[in-house]
Nucleic acid binder design. Sequence first.
RNA 1: GGAAGGGUGGCCGAGCGGCUUAAGGCGCACGCUUGGAAAGCGUGUGUGCGUGAAAGCGUACCGAGGGUUCGAAUCCCUCCCCUUCCGCCA
Length: 424
Amino acid sequence: MHDIRTLRDDATLFDAAMARRGLPPAAAGILAQDSERRAAQTALQEIQSFRNALSKRIGEARRKGEDSAALEAEVSAKRAEMEALEKKVAGLDKAIFDTLAALPNVLDGDVPEGPDESANVVLKQVGAPTDLGFEPKQHFELGEALGMMDFETATKMAGSRFTILRGGLARLERALGQFMLDTHTTQHGYTEHTVPFLVNDATMFGTNQLPKFAEDSFRTTDGRWLIATSEIPLTNTVAGEIVPEAKLPIRLTALSDCFRSEAGASGRDTRGMLRQHQFRKVELVSIVHPEQSVAEQERMTASAEKVLELLGLPYRRVVLSSGDTGFGAVRTFDLEVWLPGQQMWREISSCSNTRDFQARRMNARFRNAEGKVGGFVHTLNGSGVAVGRALIAVMENYQQADGSIRVPEALVPWMGGAEFIRKV
RNA sequence: GGAAGGGUGGCCGAGCGGCUUAAGGCGCACGCUUGGAAAGCGUGUGUGCGUGAAAGCGUACCGAGGGUUCGAAUCCCUCCCCUUCCGCCA
């Protein structure tokens, strides 16, 4: 959510920022409505002031037992004009709010220019693409052969883009989630949370799922929403709060199921469990002082990278281009893991700084050492990492020629000591 | 789901149609007092918006949204949330 003052201060700069997002100039139209609104509000306030003064005199007159009919008539005469102005102000307020709420965040200066993911820039690579020494299989081939990944039965009961895991792979998914949570809580200072998977409209607005991206989420019959990521409940823990500065930074993590309608993704990644309506993810959220968000994004991304390093997965860090950066982010680092079966780097984590964009929507502020409200906090979110995709990555990178899966060393304690997943 | 009681400023809490730009207290800030502190005393202490060079002035805000009225924290309606009891239930 933008502060209208940034448009008033420099409309050209704002339009330039929107142009980087591929959007037409918007400032002039909004500012025209803004000045119209202010004029109407001033006119309204003059009438309100007049009314308040007369109402006071009416009260005094009545207490003295005098006749107040003339004064009452004088106020009543203004009624139509006042209602019209109230309506105008409210209408313009809503129009301006709706427009601002639908505009994406202003990108950081160091975000590379480009129309889409083709312009993303690789910042570093850790590990080389795995050389297995035989023809690698894709995860769904491996999983089905093991009898532990069942798309057919899941589709029967729920439709496409659902998967049933069994036995060793179900255990592996659980182990990955526990391992990631334990890593972030014991090594990176994040506090574990369990959160609601169903949330209300205001919460969805706070983390930018609403109003623009309603079709990406599932809605319940009682008007709630299934969370698309635990970023939503975690970040909204500070909604409406004034956090003492001494409590910052606040670092939160949760393992949750995530629900996405994948509207508009038809035909993409239809094989296997790369893109599902329901998947598990360990999320990292940081609530920080405004001066700390740039450093925190680096720290958060490093925390996610640590998980991939411990799992021994080749990955690279990519900074998303202007055309690929999400609505609420000023800058996003993606982590891409190597998938031997696909012979491709695929996204497994996305770490974004939103600065005060979400905080403004949620009205999340901090109180400084002097006890004054110091402004909006900055919020960041990142996957630490996507559990379903980590499962795929482990399967494809640790597959053996006989179709079994070796368990990464770091994961063995969470697997009850098992070192291999074999067909039973 | 049913019944009752509630939601007021950073916190507690009064107010239940005009004298409230919300009493009082706590907390906080500054000052007086003191060798220093505590206590005491005094002063100040919300947010948004509009207007203004500024000081200031105006306006809105007492869970949210509507309504009644010359005037609403106060009355009416709808919704949300909290507490207690009952019912149901992993």
